[in-house]
C-alpha cells in the first residue's frame, strides 16, 4: 500500500471533513467539489488509480479494507464473476458524527460517489455507490461490459 498509517487515529478529522464538504458545496458548488475529489482520487491516490487503469482493483480493495478496519467499521466483501461488492454495514464516519451529535452532511454520500466516479474514470471499471440506510452502503466495482480483461 502506498499509504499505510499506523498508531493512534484522530477521528475528529471527520468533523473537519464534514464541515469542509458543506463549506465547499455552499461557497463553490458541486463542480468544485467534484474537482476536489477527482484530484484526491487520481492524484493523491495515484497508485490506486494507476492500478485501476491497468485493470487491477486489488489496491483499492486493500485500501478500503485497511482503513475501514483501522477505524473500526464493519463491512462484508462479496465477489461475483465480474464484480466485487464492498458492503459497509457500519460506517465509522457516520458513527463518529452521531457520537458527537453532529448531523451527517447532506453530501457525505455524494463525496463517496464522486471519489468512486473519479477512480473509475478512464479505467475498465465502473464503481457504483448505493446508500442503503444511514451509515450503510455498498460500493460495487464492476468490470464494464466491453472490457475483455
Amino acid at each position: 500500500m502506498r499509504y499505510k498509517d499506523t498508531g493512534e487515529v484522530h477521528m475528529d478529522f471527520h468533523l473537519a471533513t464534514n464541515e469542509t464538504i458543506e463549506y465547499v458545496l455552499t461557497e463553490y458548488g458541486q463542480d468544485f467539489l467534484k474537482e476536489l475529489f477527482r484530484r484526491t482520487a487520481q492524484n493523491v491516490y495515484l497508485d490506486i488509480y494507476n492500478g485501476l487503469r491497468k485493470g487491477d482493483s486489488q489496491k483499492l480493495l486493500e485500501h478500503w479494507s485497511y482503513y475501514y478496519t483501522r477505524e473500526k467499521g464493519d463491512y462484508i466483501i462479496t465477489e461475483g464473476l465480474n464484480e466485487v461488492c464492498f458492503h459497509v454495514t457500519e460506517c465509522p464516519v457516520v458513527r463518529h458524527l452521531k457520537e458527537n451529535k453532529i448531523p451527517v452532511n447532506r453530501a457525505f454520500y455524494l463525496q463517496m460517489e464522486l471519489m468512486n466516479n473519479a477512480w473509475s474514470e478512464d479505467t475498465p471499471f465502473n464503481i457504483e455507490t448505493s446508500v442503503l440506510s444511514e451509515g450503510e452502503y455498498t460500493m460495487t466495482i464492476r468490470r464494464t461490459p466491453n472490457d475483455s480483461q
Partner: peptide, 18 residues
C-alpha cells in the same frame, strides 16, 4: 470515506484549488 488519516492530503488539494 476519506480516512481520518488522509484528511490532510485531501485538504492539501483544497488549499491548492482555493
Amino acid at each position: 470515506m476519506i480516512p481520518s488519516d488522509h484528511f490532510v492530503r485531501m485538504y492539501n488539494e483544497l488549499f491548492k484549488m482555493l
